[in-house]
């Protein structure tokens, strides 16, 4: 999935996959913060957004 999105020109940091067990709340918090930081760094999404949907 990620590969083709990237191939079509979507930033790699727009999509994340991870594996967290239900006991790993610390890892969960860590991953949330990490992903948020990454997405903040690349800015708002312009790709694959349907412009009409924004108007509505």
């Amino acid at each position: 999935m990620k590969n083709l999105l990237e191939c079509m020109g979507v930033e790699p940091d727009r999509i994340h996959f991870s594996w967290i067990s239900s006991a790993e709340s610390t890892k969960f918090v860590e991953v949330v913060n990490k992903i948020t930081a990454k997405v903040k760094a690349i800015g708002p999404n312009q790709r694959f957004v349907k412009q009409a949907a924004k108007v509505a």
Binding site: E6, C7, M8, G9, V10, E11, R47
Partner: peptide, 17 residues
């Protein structure tokens, strides 16, 4: 041809498609 697209920079790939 796929490899050629992969070698393009991100913006160019988006524009290409």
């Amino acid at each position: 041809d796929v490899a050629a697209i992969e070698a393009m920079p991100l913006e160019e790939r988006w524009a290409f498609f």
